[in-house]
């Protein structure tokens, strides 16, 4: 199996502070690859380098063999890369269906044609929206404003927005952050159902979430890659225990 996403020696400094220092990793197609580390380890900065939010100071990011370093965030969905956000990121005053529509529309097949038609009549987008809402189980809420959804439902809507882009690669930034235990369970179960259908990169700092889900785990510590392996390997790694688990014990 080839690597769908490859991070090559990526560094990012803010002034004198090196948030990410020479990190390399390869995400195999079809796998769920987690990047973990304590808060401040540079996970989010690395994530933002991949999504184009920030420019890496050095290094390359390759997707499907293509150099995507420095591409702006809005260029990625067209390549098949979609993301969710750490703090739920939806369009609060739009309806649930409109939220997903915005994503599906950006990836519509047919371009051109008349512009000033009602939004819901754009061909091919409606089906994608319905499928994505059904997938996350929010079809019943389609016409409600997104702002009134429960917290956990909003997180699922965030996923539906990402899925409506019909991605190959799904980037999930701490999907359980700020959720209750119950909601966390629901979101983890849901990510489990995505596994195998998409290549997934998951950023997390909760160890337990990652270990049950991941095919492969990379551990970051102070901006560097500390270890990489399968969940059992990581669990057994002395350096990881010292740096990460040790602190929790």
């Amino acid at each position: 199996m080839s690597a769908l996403l490859e991070v090559r020696d990526v560094s990012k400094s803010f002034g004198a502070v090196a948030a990410v220092a020479g990190v390399s990793l390869a995400v195999t197609e079809g796998r769920l690859h987690s990047i973990i580390g304590p808060n401040g380890a540079g996970k989010t900065t690395l994530f933002n380098c991949i999504t184009g939010e920030v420019q890496p100071t050095a290094g390359r990011i390759l997707y499907d063999g293509r150099d995507i370093t420095g591409l702006p965030p809005h260029a990625l969905p067209a390549l098949g890369i979609a993301r969710s956000f750490q703090r739920t990121s939806i369009f609060p005053t739009l309806t649930v269906a409109e939220n997903v529509w915005v994503s599906a529309y950006a990836r519509r097949e047919t371009r051109g044609g008349p512009v000033l038609v009602p939004a819901d009549r754009v061909e091919g987008v409606g089906e994608t929206v319905r499928a994505a809402l059904a997938e996350v189980g929010l079809a019943a809420h389609a016409e409600r404003p997104a702002a009134v959804l429960a917290h956990g439902d909003q997180r699922l809507l965030d996923f539906a927005i990402a899925l409506a882009a019909r991605p190959r690669l799904l980037l999930l930034d701490e999907p359980t952050a700020g959720l209750s235990r119950q909601e966390t369970q629901r979101v983890i179960a849901y990510i489990g159902t995505l596994k195998g259908r998409y290549t997934i990169v998951l950023i997390e700092h909760k160890m337990d979430v990652v270990m049950t889900l991941s095919d492969r785990v990379s551990v970051m510590y102070f901006g560097r890659l500390l270890a990489e392996g399968t969940p059992p390997e990581i669990r057994g790694d002395a350096r990881v225990r010292e740096a990460y688990l040790g602190k929790r014990a």
């Binding site: 999504t51 939010e53 702006p72 965030p73 809005h74 260029a75 990625l76 969905p77 067209a78 979609a82 993301r83 956000f85 990121s89 939806i90 369009f91 609060p92 005053t93 739009l94 409109e98 939220n99 915005v102 994503s103 950006a106 990836r107 927005i161 990402a162 409506a164 882009a165």
Partner: peptide, 14 residues
């Protein structure tokens, strides 16, 4: 309207 609600998200979906 999506941009008004959430600019970063609108960019992230393409």
């Amino acid at each position: 309207r999506a941009i008004r609600d959430n600019e970063a998200r609108a960019a992230a979906v393409g």
